[in-house]
Simulated scan of single mutants.
Amino acid sequence: MFSRKLAKSMRERLRAERRENQLIEARAKEEISFIYVVNPPEIPRIAFGSGLERVTLPMSGPSLTPFMRKIQGEVREFPGPHEYNTTKDLIKKNASKYGNAPFVSKLPRLAQTATSAYPPVGTYHVHPPKKLKQAARPFNVGALQKPVEKFTTTGPANYAIDRQSPNMKICSAFGSKRIIWPAVAIICSPVNNAKCSKCSSTPIGDYYHQFKLNLDLCRSCMKKQLRILKRCTTDLYYRARMRNELNQYQRVRYCGFFHDHQGTTAAIQLMSKSTLKYKIRTENYLYTYHKL
Rank of each mutant, 00 (worst) to 15 (best):
S9A: 10
I91C: 12
Q112R: 08
T154P: 11
F257Y: 09
T152Q: 10
P119I: 01
K146A: 11
V75T: 07
N94K: 06
E30D: 13
I91F: 13
S201I: 10
H290F: 15
K146M: 10
L6F: 12
H82T: 07
T65H: 04
R241F: 01
F174G: 15
K8Q: 11
Y249V: 00
G155N: 10
V191H: 03
S201H: 08
N85S: 07
S60G: 04
Y249N: 03
C255V: 09
C188R: 05
L64S: 01
S172C: 07
I24W: 10
F34G: 04
H290V: 12
N21H: 08
C221T: 01
N100W: 07
I179N: 04
F257C: 06
G142A: 11
K106P: 04
K97H: 03
P156V: 12
T152I: 10
Y208E: 00
S96C: 05
A143E: 14
A173N: 14
Y36P: 04
V252W: 00
S116M: 05
K177Q: 09
S116E: 04
S9Q: 12
L292V: 11
I280L: 07
P62V: 02
C188M: 04
K277A: 14
Y84Q: 12
R54N: 08
P129L: 14
L286H: 09
Y285W: 14
P166L: 01
G73R: 01
D216P: 01
Q248D: 03
C171A: 15
S197M: 00
G155A: 10
R251F: 05
D235Y: 06
F78H: 09
I204T: 15
A240V: 02
K223T: 01
K195M: 00
A101P: 04
K169S: 09
V75H: 07
H259L: 09
G205Q: 03
R137K: 15
P128H: 05
G175K: 01
P108F: 09
T113V: 14
I24L: 14
K97S: 07
S96I: 02
T288I: 08
R137V: 13
F151I: 15
I71Y: 12
P138W: 07
T233Y: 07
R231Q: 09
R253P: 05
L107N: 03
Q145D: 13
A47N: 08
F103I: 05
L64I: 00
V141D: 15
K291E: 13
K146F: 13
L23H: 14
T265H: 14
H209Q: 03
D235F: 04
P79F: 05
I179V: 07
Y98T: 10
V252D: 00
